[in-house]
């Protein structure tokens, strides 16, 4: 069954490299350049795993995850967080509280990212299907 992945980063080339890697591995890939765009995509399309950058315009990575945890359809969505800066303690604590599964430092290897994501997907009980229900309006906090 095709796995879905949503890649979210404001650096177009980074997203594009990861997109190529995952597409060649058979993933169904969607991309977003910030948290708001990712949120909009997930209103109609829920992935099996979300890979998101931490620092982004409009809505940052942790802000996006917080919003997702408040919506029923994405409350348990596996998330991998990318960050260019050393992950400071308060963010790490917040990430743990938001049940972020992995944190990867930039610059990252697409190969390594693929391995990490495949592990997450294997361990996840969630099975994505093409007729996943859209997030119900008003379910976010």
């Amino acid at each position: 069954m095709t796995k879905r992945i949503l890649l979210c980063d404001d650096e177009f080339h980074i997203v594009r490299a990861a997109e190529i890697k995952f597409q060649r591995r058979g993933f169904e890939v969607r991309t977003a350049s910030d948290g708001e765009e990712a949120w909009e995509i997930m209103q109609n399309w829920v992935p099996d795993v979300l890979v998101t950058d931490c620092q982004m315009p409009r809505l940052d990575g942790l802000g996006l995850v917080e919003r997702l945890r408040g919506a029923a359809a994405t409350a348990d969505l596996p998330v991998l967080l990318l960050t260019a800066k050393s992950f400071e303690k308060q963010y790490r604590e917040r990430a743990e509280a938001l049940r972020v599964l992995r944190v990867m430092a930039k610059p990252f290897s697409p190969r390594e990212l693929l391995i990490q994501v495949e592990q997450i997907v294997e361990q996840s009980p969630r099975t994505a299907t093409s007729d996943d229900v859209a997030l119900e309006a008003g379910s976010c906090n």
């Binding site: 890697k21 930039k106 610059p107």
Partner: peptide
Amino acid sequence: SHEMKTPLSGIKAYVEL
């Protein structure tokens, strides 16, 4: 370092691809 890591990330990723 952040500004340098961003282009480096791109270079590294595409070299690997």
